[in-house]
């Protein structure tokens, strides 16, 4: 059941990000729902599940993207790694504020790293890329506030059926 739910979440996420949010933008910015899911997943699911989810999702997105190859996988795995270090076993202590700050930092690191590598490769450093990274982080954070309560319920579904999960 857990595997099936994770696969379903993974498929929906990849399709939404690549086929829908890849062509959608608000004033030029588009939310990164994969990042939102990775952060929420890493905070509320078992750490090994989060690693698998981060790796598979990152790898598929790396293939679909124009690169630099490996950036999705590396950043997603790093998010899960950091989450494992700073979050203890009792996920009930995780507040929305903490999760949103964790997401904001993750998104900033992801976009600024992405922008810096692309700028270095194209030898074309522009401030617009930095501002763009901040804008992308802001809209991702906005969407996170909207979907976080629902994602939390989805990822903690076992507690609803009485199967108490230990992180």
């Amino acid at each position: 059941m857990i595997i099936l739910i994770n696969i379903l979440v993974f498929i929906i996420t990849v399709y939404l990000q690549s086929a829908v949010f890849g062509r959608f933008d608000l004033f030029g910015f588009a939310p990164n729902i994969v990042l939102i899911l990775i952060v929420t997943f890493s905070l509320y699911r078992k750490i090994y599940e989060a690693y698998v989810f981060a790796f598979v999702t990152g790898f598929v997105l790396d293939i679909l993207s124009a690169g630099p190859f490996g950036i999705y996988t590396t950043v997603f795995m790093a998010i899960v790694f950091v989450s494992g270090l700073i979050v203890d076993e009792d996920h009930s202590k995780i507040s929305t504020t903490f999760a949103s700050i964790f997401l904001a930092i993750s998104a900033l690191v992801f976009y600024i790293t992405f922008w810096a590598i692309v700028s270095y490769q194209s030898k074309n450093f522009t401030l617009s890329g930095f501002v763009f990274s901040i804008g992308q982080t802001a809209i991702t954070l906005g969407v996170f506030f909207l979907v976080f309560p629902y994602l939390k319920k989805i990822f903690l579904w076992e507690e609803k059926v009485g199967d108490v999960r230990i992180r």
């Binding site: 690549s18 949010f21 890849g22 679909l64 993207s65 124009a66 992308q136």
Partner: peptide
């Protein structure tokens, strides 16, 4: 077109 680039930083299609 099957897919658009997942981020808005790179611009590619499949």
């Amino acid at each position: 077109i099957s897919f658009f680039d997942p981020t808005n930083i790179r611009e590619s299609i499949i």
